[in-house]
């Protein structure tokens, strides 16, 4: 483990969107670069690479994390879900439909991260107030919408899941 043996690559095995993935990665590679470059899952975006903008938010072992603030090697053995997997499984289809109907996205760059954050809120709090929604997504930067439509879409989804009013 010392000297020359301290190599700068490592073999990792993880489950990404339910698929087992084994790769050799440079240890300095963060999770989102790994997902985007190595696995070609380009739905997770990079907006700052310092953990502020939230565009890289993905799910690791069931919780939302900043993909740029986690090394790919740290995800060894983990279950990672990206927007591609969450879309294909239909897990957040109602939320996506609400975003679509309400035009809660414009350029779409923040959207995958925003959806992961919103989904986590809805799982923990089935009846969030608008202020709670705003607080929960306060780490996800959106330059286009002004947030109002996003708050509407999340609120609508929560109401629909509670059986109040139809899904958007």
């Amino acid at each position: 483990m010392d000297g020359a043996s301290m190599d700068r690559v490592r073999d990792v095995t993880l489950w990404v969107n339910g698929e087992r993935v084994s790769r050799r990665v440079a240890v300095r590679t963060h999770l989102v670069d790994f997902l985007r470059v190595e696995l070609e899952l380009t739905g997770s975006h990079l907006g700052c690479e310092q953990g502020v903008c939230g565009a890289c938010t993905v799910r690791v072992d069931g919780v939302a994390v900043r993909g740029c603030l986690m090394l790919a090697v740290q995800a060894d053995g983990a279950r990672v879900e990206t927007i591609e997997g969450l879309s294909d499984s239909g897990a957040i289809a109602d939320l996506q439909a609400a975003f679509h109907a309400r035009n809660a996205l414009q350029c779409g760059y923040c959207t995958p991260g925003m959806l992961v954050s919103a989904a986590e809120l809805l799982a923990a709090n089935p009846a969030p107030t608008r202020d709670e929604i705003r607080a929960h997504i306060s780490g996800n930067y959106c330059r286009c919408t002004g947030y109002h439509a996003i708050v509407d879409a999340i609120e609508t989804t929560a109401a629909a899941r509670r059986g109040e009013g139809g899904a958007a």
Binding site: T42, G43, T82, I83, H100, G108, P112
Partner: peptide, 21 residues
């Protein structure tokens, strides 16, 4: 009318320049 091209953005299927290889 909802934007037809928004659906793929919602699924992370947008193609931004950095997505191209």
């Amino acid at each position: 009318v909802p934007r037809p091209n928004a659906r793929r953005l919602l699924q992370g299927r947008g193609i931004y320049v950095d997505d191209l290889k």
